[in-house]
Design a protein around this nucleic acid. Sequence first.
DNA 1: TCAAAAGTGTTCAGCGTACACCCATGT
DNA 2: ACATGGGTGTACGCTGAACACTTTTGA
Lengths: 230, 230
Amino acid sequence: MTIYDGVHDKNFVAIDSIIFGFDQGRLKLLLIKRKMPPMEGQWSLMGGFVGSHESVDDAAYRILENLTGLKSIFLEQLYAYGDLDRDSAGRVISVAYYALINIDNYDEELGRKYGAEWFTMDEIPSLVFDHSTMVQKAIRRLKRKTIIQPIGFELLPPKFTLTQLQQLYEAIHQKEIDKRNFRKKILSMGVLNKLDEKDKESSKRGAFLYKFNKEKYDYLTSKENLFDFI
Amino acid sequence: MTIYDGVHDKNFVAIDSIIFGFDQGRLKLLLIKRKMPPMEGQWSLMGGFVGSHESVDDAAYRILENLTGLKSIFLEQLYAYGDLDRDSAGRVISVAYYALINIDNYDEELGRKYGAEWFTMDEIPSLVFDHSTMVQKAIRRLKRKTIIQPIGFELLPPKFTLTQLQQLYEAIHQKEIDKRNFRKKILSMGVLNKLDEKDKESSKRGAFLYKFNKEKYDYLTSKENLFDFI
DNA sequence: TCAAAAGTGTTCAGCGTACACCCATGT
DNA sequence: ACATGGGTGTACGCTGAACACTTTTGA
């Protein structure tokens, strides 16, 4: 009960989550096959409704955890979609969020339960409602953020090689990057700590592993946020 | 009636508008004094509720027109605020929009009706709820946009001098800009058309008036939007 | 004649970009 | 020995930033 009751309309408010993962050098998107009408059997973003007793952010975290089993991950509001007929089953305002997750930590069990599958960017099927629009916007946002922020570590395992990191950037921007320039720039940011270990998986010589310096990373991201990135 | 009825919660969804104007070399913000509880008598952004039969964008335009009398102006979604207790009178999710208006076209009659007043940026009083947060975010967004886009023409009269335009940029960024560098850069963008007229108001010598080239301006803003700016 | 704003070019540093070769090692 | 990915340095052009003087004209 609020003092607004009876005076104004209420609306359904939903969350839709654009969930990015990175695996085998490819940027991927987690989609689910709808199990209920409308649009049953069509591919869709993971979503859910915002309850009356939870914040919108909490609802976004709750819904993401339901699908992925992940609790504290990168999750950021993208945009609120409010066209009258965007959901063919009725008036629903949707707040889209995008998440970056390390695909290794993803709970496949949960995924199966929801009929979820990972798609590479060039294989994304057409999606229900305005979900394709949301995905396009999320990709643009992700590209833009990486230009001036060392974002995207969330998509990698804790220890990674510079080549893996470069592949991530190449996957996000969908173009090749010069190895020397990339290393020069990323190392000059000072957010990487070189480890003594090498990864021997992908080459005979082995590549040094890095982890990122959380303090400097947090400092940079918060400082750059003064520049605003929502 | 939708197929979601009864299954999920509905919520009040509101709009809050951050309305920027530019006058006498100063960037200004339009605020209203609340005439109803809660927080009666406190300064607030202009707002209103989203109805069940209008899109969120339409609601934002409607609310802005109510206060300013202006119909087709620059209006862009900023962010959706969804904390549980953000409105002390009950659970309201608010989608904030920011608008840029030419202060000359503003309908003062309407403003008086709502108890609206213009405040310069350094005089903004403390605002109800999370409205101060919204304003801060809008200012950051405005700064960022002007860095790579020739935004802000909406805030000026149709014909303006380069000095006026520079003052607008200085007001937005709150720092002085070198005259030569500013002119060089803005003219190189090719969005300005120099007129034969001079404005003699502000100097004896007179300053050439410019208007902006709408085609090039629209092209640039849409092209740059590929770079994404929401 | 003088005050007040308009108008105008050059220099420098830093950054992004292009570009090619040697190294280490497992097979 | 060779194939495979790892690792490194230099040169150039562009852009942003700093910087000072002349012009016009109404009062």
